[in-house]
Design a protein around this nucleic acid. Structure first.
Lengths: 228, 228
DNA sequence: TGTACATCAGTGAACGCGCGTTCACTGATGTAC
DNA sequence: TGTACATCAGTGAACGCGCGTTCACTGATGTAC
């Protein structure tokens, strides 16, 4: 019943506000840290556990801190999704750039898309969950254009990486169909793979160890006009 | 402070338990009614609002009633998803059957898939949300096989509608790739369409009113070997 | 035809939980003079 | 170089909400005799 309990110990510490985290009051780069924390939470527990409070907890910060920087939950998730799109674009461009000579850039790009989805399945899913995102948020709009261009650009020369008036301004009918087909095909492969819808096919087919091998074979067997 | 308040009125009613619903105590076909209610809730509020309590509320029943029949939330949603798969299969087969003579059955089947997704976008999404479903539930396993066969069967003759030892037993390498490609393509088209990822392409292309027209053109321009 | 009893179907009150939001606050930083 | 003050960054208590689960219950139905 006395007041001098153990919880009052260690009085000489400089900033005893957070017992375990001796960080400064002003974090300095909390937004970045929060996005990292969000991704950690996402990887650990999937989309179900990705809440404002869980993110703040992971970052070691009060759960109102994220609001300060991102407005609301959709704000945090939208920034995370935007980062995902930028990384997806990087992955595609990286693989296209470093592909073995003679390998079509289009197939390398498709492999980049698949590899991203496999490497970050829940982030990949988040990027499609419109009801969790603020689709108007400028950074997300922009990041989506970046990944769309990275994919479509390699399938259609008219889609320039640095196009000004929207990502697809001025395309023709045949180009629109080609982009649609390529986008749907690659995104569809990634989606059915990540969602385990191909497992039964892979199990039944003799020459494929897993669904990923099946998807990669499907990409490599794509019939397409040569790269521009 | 007296006991004879207004809440004690209407004493002569036969079954005054539920004031507004004069249904019998034993519903008779509550499971079916609950699935209908679930779909109504899904259509009205999307996946976010699809909870046990909301479903029971819609059915005019206490929120423990669904548990009695389905075990838990995942049980209800899994049955709903299973019904979705059966209806998807029906839609594909119906369109393939009633297609104009000369129209490839494969394209008609693909159109059926797309039409289902457009007609029931949230149900279509639910069917892919593994974290909400009990993927072991026999009725869901079976319904998924039915829709998989309806799609794959038309793209590969080796996948028989009534195959016994699993939906894809005995297929070869080329067949596995063909099924994977077809599945990913059709599912990808439906997904990017329903998720509004094609809107910017459709807007930029001169000859397409909306993304749906773009998707249909992408199906009709599929290059494929003739139907078996 | 009637009665007793077991089983099935659904109720409703209570619970604890984690969530996002609000709000008054305090500590840290930067700038004006 | 020092002081005052505004602004920015983060805290933590409190709130109400809807959720799924549990549990003892009651009404309806079916079956045995």
């Amino acid at each position: 019943m006395t007041e001098s309990t153990a919880s009052r110990a260690a009085p000489a510490r400089a900033r005893p506000r957070r017992a375990d985290k001796a960080g400064p009051y002003h974090h300095g780069s909390l937004p970045k840290a929060l996005l990292q924390a969000a991704e950690t939470v996402l990887k650990r527990g999937g989309l179900r556990g990705l809440t404002l409070r869980a993110i703040a907890r992971e970052a070691g910060v009060s759960h109102t801190a994220p609001q300060h920087h991102f407005g609301d939950t959709a704000g945090v998730l939208s920034e995370l999704a935007a980062a995902g799109h930028r990384r997806l674009a990087n992955e595609m461009e990286e693989q296209a750039r470093s592909a073995a000579p003679g390998k079509p850039r289009r197939k390398a790009t498709a492999h980049g898309y698949i590899d991203f989805a496999i490497g970050h399945p829940d982030l990949f899913r988040l990027m499609s969950r419109n009801e969790l995102l603020d689709s108007e948020r400028p950074s997300l709009v922009e990041a989506r254009q970046i990944s769309a261009r990275a994919l479509a650009g390699v399938f259609d020369a008219a889609t320039k990486p640095q196009q000004e008036a929207g990502p697809f301004a001025g395309i023709g009918t045949a180009q629109a169909i080609a982009i649609t087909a390529a986008w749907a095909y690659v995104h569809g492969l990634a989606t059915v793979l990540v969602d385990h819808r191909l497992d039964s096919v892979a199990r039944a087919a003799p020459d494929f160890g897993d669904a990923r091998a099946l998807v990669e074979a499907a990409i490599d067997s794509m019939k397409m006009v040569p790269d521009a």
